[in-house]
Design a protein around this nucleic acid. Structure first.
Lengths: 211, 211, 211, 211
DNA sequence: GATGAATGAGCTTTCATTCAT
DNA sequence: CATGAATGAAAGCTCATTCAT
């Protein structure tokens, strides 16, 4: 076996190994930053700490992120991607024309499962982190996409579906956020609260429209 | 955050401002800080800037506030006091046993008027400012007081009034916050949205209880 | 003597003392920076070192200079002011219509005395320090002012005085810079070189103009 | 400058580039560095950028240059070699005993053509780049060689040829540098300025010696 | 009481250099 | 030989806080 061929064959894994290492570094940085954010808040997030926690040098942080904010961007990105994935799932289930109760279940269940994931990080992200205009608009676009989707599902059942979709999506999001992320006190268990929320939204959707 | 002792310092004015001039100084400091917060966000708030904007020296700021955080505390205080004043008003009106529609009107109207006041400051306070545990609990206590009040008003009309009060208060607060403070896009005018919100809460309260 | 009057009278010195202290700080910073520049070059100039050498804290440096470059600006400023002062002096002497030899003496003597002052700092400033466009244009303006002044003095004696002034000013500046600042090797003593320079410029001015 | 050892390292290519490919790499590095220097100045020159612009890896840069400074050394080297080549040419022409006017023409023409080549790089090299003592002395040696050469050519025509050579070489170099490299404002076109410079140097050489 | 100059810990960011692959 | 990920010392700059006047 000629050496030149051997080395070419052998070299490919080397490249991949390098990319894998770099990928691992990026991952470690994001994980470390998310941890710090969740545990100690936005005020405690600094690039040196991130680097130390990630087990890399500050230089490496700046190798992959142009500045501190970009790290938070990446974390938010992951979260928004989760939300977008959930939409994709929901859209799939909304294809077979669910009734009102099913729509509400999907909505409430979706937001609750979304907010159950790392609530502390979620809280810091939503109540301490200064979002850039781009980030804000991306969050807003996601919200509108959800509302649009729900409106289409509601169309066969109610009047002014967009209006109602807007209300129920915001309500479902807000209350589940409040209960799970803000850990606001509730007079009953989470399951009961969720059921009551479902009850409220369904009552609203089934009521005759406002004059 | 260079001052490692800052957070250990008590959050109480160093000296009570008794004289009128001193009161004016305190007021100027709070106003300046609120302005900066509203215009440029938490990240731009620093004691030297506050002092300059207030037309006093940094030294004077520290004469009345033990540390930077105490200034924000004072701002939050003013806001919470507004909320508390609104409760007092509401309690007054709830004395003469209003019906469901009147209760909902009072609730929705109250939160909307509350959120209409300096929404930018409100946003910074609720989504960028790191609140101390004491501040959080104070906000939470206010919320619970409102819920309690509404629950008592609802008692003659519905079952599980505490549960329902909890839901409608949170919904009214969340949606009005979203529309007015976060300036989230809405499919209709503010008046229509408010009416729809009213409609939703009333439908929920009039529906037979969940099984 | 009423106490209120006494304190007002006494307070003025306090204010002045403060301003004096601040002035001393500024002076110390500039001196320290100039020293570092002269001794160790542009590459060794950093704000922390400047602060230490000036016997103040970094914070104080930034209290008076918005950034590192501004310190160098201030140093350059002082140098340019020296040059401008020399022009003023020269202009004074050129009033009583000197002859060619006197003009050349004034010019050569002026540049030599200018370049004799802290040549090491001068060298760093002219051959290591990256000047901003504003700084460059200010230096250029000074040069043109000198040329203009010399041209006016030459007008009664030669043709194309602007052209000749431009040449002789640049030559006088360049050679004295080279000898005193760059410490370039010379085949004779400084006095001889200066005399020879004088000789050259005078020979040029007295020669009949180029065709 | 993070590398405290850098200045202690020898300024000699780590390995002699013997193969054609290696030679091309070295060339690319030097070209890239020169470009950056000319376009963005000394402050923008950094090894990673040089590597990227040269289309090689940083590692390769350090394969051929022991440190950043060595790259600048190489650039300066090329420039000095140009100057040396010009001397060789000049020496050739000075063999057949030119008269004063021819000597001056050769000198002025030589410096002007030298300074016309990449003036921006030339400027950065002469007014931003911190030269090492070795580099300074090499430049100085080149200058002395030129002076020596001119002195020999002048010997048959004037007294104190070394002294006069020193003056006219420095003047020719300085003024052409000022006009072409520093882009200093001139009251006439470049050709006129050059003619005037010639005129000045010739007048000086033909004048009777200073007493 | 009021002032504001001074402080300095701590943060973000850069970049020359190394070395495992 | 070449690569480029990783390093980390060091620089620029901010700002909460103090204290002499």
């Amino acid at each position: 076996m000629p050496a030149s061929v051997a080395s070419k064959v052998a070299r490919r894994p080397v490249r991949q190994a390098r990319q894998a290492r770099a990928q691992a570094t990026v991952e470690a940085i994001i994980q470390a930053a998310a941890q710090i954010l969740a545990e100690a808040g936005w005020g405690a997030l600094n690039t040196n700490l991130v680097a130390r926690r990630a087990g890399v040098s500050v230089g490496s942080v700046y190798e992959y992120f142009p500045n501190k904010n970009a790290i938070v961007d990446a974390i938010l990105d992951a979260h928004l991607r989760q939300g977008e994935a959930l939409i994709a799932q929901g859209a799939l289930r909304l294809v077979d024309r669910p009734d009102i109760s099913e729509i509400v279940s999907l909505l409430v269940g979706g937001f609750i499962s979304l907010h159950r994931d790392d609530p502390r990080l979620h809280r810091v992200l939503s109540s301490e982190t200064p979002l850039s205009p781009e980030q804000r608009s991306r969050v807003e676009r996601l919200r509108l996409a959800i509302i649009q989707m729900v409106a289409e599902a509601l169309a066969p059942h109610v009047e002014t579906p967009e209006l109602r979709a807007s209300l129920i999506v915001d309500v479902a999001e807000s209350l589940s956020h409040r209960w799970l992320v803000d850990e606001a006190g509730t007079p009953a268990s989470e399951a009961v609260m969720a059921a009551e929320l479902h009850h409220m939204l369904e009552a609203y959707l089934r009521a005759c429209p406002a004059p």
